[in-house]
Amino acid sequence: MDAVKQHQQEEYQQFIKDKIPKPNLLRNAVAAFVVGGLICDVGQFISNFGQSYFNLNKDDTSAFTAIVLVFLGALLTGLGIYDQIGRFAGAGSVVPITGFANSIVSPAMEFKREGYVLGVGAKMFIIAGPVLVYGFSSSVALGILYLLFSI
């Protein structure tokens, strides 16, 4: 790209800088904090419930809570509610495990019309895939470090 064009582009990007509205960070952060916190409260409630009613041990309680939260995330996605929560809460509903459920169920619903193999099967992890790939990779890396330094 020649210098004149690059200069024009930089000038334009500077020119529009204060004309483009910024997302309201404070409002978004508060919404994310409140909704994310509420989802965690629900998780804590499920966890307490599992411990006291089913006498689950620590590991089983974590699994029980994750299963119920994933189910709720998937259900709310299917009912068309989770995207509305997400529009309001942003990261507050993306980060918890319910958001993970949402990221898998929503493409599964979306691509059902392309069939169960090339639609649902192939596209289901289109959003969650990177999280899984890098989550697994970093857990392997961490495992190796753990092995090296804790023996």
Binding site: P21, P23, T77, D83, A89, S106, P107
Partner: peptide, 17 residues
Amino acid sequence: ERQYRFPLELGVQRPPT
């Protein structure tokens, strides 16, 4: 939406622009 962005039911925030 499905071609250019995300599945409809994915809970994401859209920027003001």
